[in-house]
Design a binder for these strands. Structure first.
Lengths: 238, 238
DNA sequence: GGCAAACACGAGCGATCACTCGCGTTCCAC
DNA sequence: GTGGAACGCGAGTGATCGCTCGTGTTTGCC
């Protein structure tokens, strides 16, 4: 009996509940202590995932990090994957909140250097504050559900980047625009790893400025005229 | 994995020395069949590491992939880590061989676009042909020995990049030069992931060209004069 | 105070993993 | 041919992991 899903118990329902919630499989009432434990466990899971990755992290280690017993952990999460999913969803929500305002139309009207600041800074700040995010998302050992959500985020971010590129280089073919957006984001991810690896302080700030320089030099030529077939852009040899 | 982490140092297979010492723990004579089995096992290990990562890969799965029994696997490797180490060393050796000629002085005399071709192309070709290399090196779950060797390779490659930058921008301060080299390599790694993710064929070729465009636009401004304090380089904003 | 439910524990269960061992087979020097 | 070593096998071993369960404690409500 490994299945613990309280699906339905049609037999011998003692009393019809006055409150009608047809779609509530878990009417578990949480106390304030329980909510605190959940946050505590998720924080511990973030630490362990961050230093060991998902698969190498053991649930016992997470429980120990949170100073609770394994049984207590499994009172709040049905299995190990659910811990990662809940943590991933919370981080994703924070991420969308912190980053959602970066691509507003008013920011899109900014010149490229300022737009870069507006987009890159919150992204870097979030990843510095939540290193578990990249550890969960970038790791190839993440559970399927996390990978799906990360893909969804990735696709939406790429769409935003394509919008920006379309704004600055309206004459560019869609296929090339997609390629430039991919490359922009990929190089940003590479630079982000560098920024996170740098020690906090002036070194990290310098690295952030360097990353912006890279992106600016890559994208700036797109803003000058249509430039559909310049000598620098994707010369098809042969 | 375990928090105690005894971290013993497993002795690597000693290379055959011309000098005959009485204390030789492994005078194992290999037959041709054995050498074939080793290559077969390493190929199987490369496949399994590539699709599952190091920790998630089981030795039984490697043996199954090689169509041998677990006992046969352990006749040639003392433990799981030794498989990864041997595979990593062989890949590293191939890598240095394929890439060692990229930074020769004659190539360094080339103009930047051609130098980029000479350096980037073999690097990409090698990683396309050996996807297990990045799976072993880039994964955070690799055994300590692999990580060390990867770090060593990383350091030596960065030194080469710094040399190139010093050649094209002699007036740049050493600290900034190191930062530019780091950023160049980091963005290349990000772009490399993109290239490997692209399907083989014209799409991949276009992505390779795009990566070179990125690197060229980033590095080209360095070639024009000393440029120690241009408006684009590492502007500290507020 | 009394009670039910939520909370907390930690020993233990089944599964899986890295790895071993005893025994049979194939190769090669002599 | 023959003996010894390299090769090959696969069930088995100890350890660890994800997860459960019986039991005891705390909390909220009357």
């Amino acid at each position: 009996m490994s299945e613990d899903a309280p699906e339905d118990v049609p037999e011998a329902t003692p009393e019809a509940t006055s409150e009608v919630t047809s779609e509530e499989p878990k009417p578990r009432r949480r106390q304030a202590r329980g909510e605190r434990r959940i946050a505590q466990l998720l924080q511990a899971a973030a630490n362990v995932f961050c230093s060991n990755g998902y698969t190498a992290a053991s649930t016992n280690a997470i429980a120990r990090e949170a100073h609770v017993s394994p049984g207590t952990l499994y009172q709040y999460f049905p299995n190990k994957e659910a811990i990662a999913i809940e943590l991933g969803e919370r981080l994703l929500h924070q991420m969308r909140e912190a980053h959602g305002q970066a691509f507003t139309p008013e920011n899109l009207a900014l010149p490229l250097p300022e737009l870069l600041d507006a987009v890159v800074d919150p992204m870097i700040e979030f990843n510095c504050a939540n290193p578990a995010f990249l550890a969960l998302m970038h790791g190839s050992d993440a559970p399927g559900r996390i990978a799906e959500e990360h893909d969804a985020l990735h696709v939406s971010l790429l769409a935003r980047v394509r919008e920006v590129i379309a704004h600055f280089a309206p004459g560019m073919p869609a296929q090339e625009r997609a390629r430039v957006a991919d490359m922009t984001f990929a190089s940003f991810k590479g630079g982000l790893d560098l920024v996170l690896a740098a020690p906090e302080g002036p070194e990290r700030d310098a690295m952030i400025a360097e990353l912006k320089t890279l992106l600016l030099r890559y994208l700036a030529p797109l803003t000058e005229g249509p430039l559909t077939e310049g000598p620098l852009t994707t010369t098809r040899s042969h």
